[in-house]
């Protein structure tokens, strides 16, 4: 692929999703886009770049290219610590809500849904302490194929062995009667979660506000201005007493003052207290 061709693709993907592709990602670009090129009968990456470089590239092609270049790696209870923190704070957070109100949790950049369903399992475990209040989980991502998998709530044998204690597997999953060795999340837990397409570069106001937001392992792919923009947007959706979880390699420091780290809790953030009072 020519440097010019690479540049066209990188610029398109950055504009659509925020994902930064540096030239050392050329190899990744080749492997990730090869199946799509074959499928669409496009001769080469340069031919693709040529089509994408036109004034108004075909929307579906541009979306498919962007989607193919997202990294969807995830696992149940990833990193452990955010979920341990949530286990501790969820009862208090929930009981602070009026009876009949639902607690709303957002898995922004949810990938195939493991994060959302981990929260659902946690909520199921904590149910006796939630005073009958409903937990509503929203998973959003930019990648449609990934979202379809999340909605289905069916996971491969490999996926259910990543991060998920076997006791939870037997309690909350059933073997897919359709075969294929897949495991399906129990219906009541699946019903707790809803999945919809949402681009983190967009305006999140229509999603409402959330008591807990997971925005993990996606900022790492963005440049600092995009990180700052996304963090500010996400912070605007957080309840005054809510929590935001970032990934292990992500921070708000130097990017926004609308969120502050909770001391001693890796990845846990909240609104600055004075702002929280006036919010």
């Amino acid at each position: 692929m020519t440097p010019q061709g690479f540049d066209v693709v990188a610029r398109l993907v950055k504009a659509r999703s925020g994902l930064v592709l540096t030239p050392d990602k050329l190899y990744m670009l080749e492997t990730r886009l090869a199946p799509m090129l074959r499928q669409q009968g496009i001769a080469s990456l340069d031919a693709l770049a040529l089509r994408l470089g036109r004034g108004a590239p075909e929307e579906r092609l541009a979306a498919a290219v962007t989607e193919a270049l997202t990294t969807n790696e995830t696992s149940f209870f990833r990193d452990g610590t955010p979920f341990e923190h949530l286990r501790k704070v969820l009862p208090k957070l929930t009981m602070a809500r009026p009876p009949g109100a639902a607690v709303r949790i957002w898995s922004a950049a949810c990938s195939t849904g493991q994060e959302a369903y981990s929260v659902a399992m946690l909520a199921a475990e904590l149910a006796p302490q939630l005073g009958g209040r409903r937990v509503e989980i929203l998973g959003t991502d930019i990648a449609e194929e990934i979202l379809a998998r999340a909605r289905e709530g069916a996971f491969t044998q490999f996926e259910v062995q990543r991060g998920l204690p076997v006791q939870m597997l037997v309690k909350y999953f059933r073997q897919d009667p359709a075969g294929g060795g897949r495991w399906r999340i129990a219906e009541p837990l699946r019903a707790m979660a809803r999945f919809q397409s949402f681009n983190l570069l967009g305006d999140p106001r229509a999603l409402g506000t959330f008591d807990v937001i997971f925005c993990r392992n996606v900022l790492i792919y963005f440049d600092p201005p995009t990180k700052a923009q996304v963090l500010a947007a996400v912070a605007s959706r957080l309840a005054p007493d809510g929590y935001l979880y970032l990934g292990g390699a992500e921070t708000v420091l130097g990017l926004t003052d609308r969120l502050v780290p909770v001391p001693g809790q890796r990845g846990v953030h909240e609104l600055p207290r004075p702002a929280a009072l006036t919010a």
């Binding site: 990833r78 990193d79 452990g80 610590t81 062995q161 990543r162 991060g163 204690p165 076997v166 292990g248």
Partner: peptide, 15 residues
């Protein structure tokens, strides 16, 4: 590694 962390024989690795 995940399973060993699960049973507490390895530390939880931030993946």
């Amino acid at each position: 590694r995940d399973k060993l962390a699960q049973v507490g024989l390895l530390p939880q690795s931030p993946a």
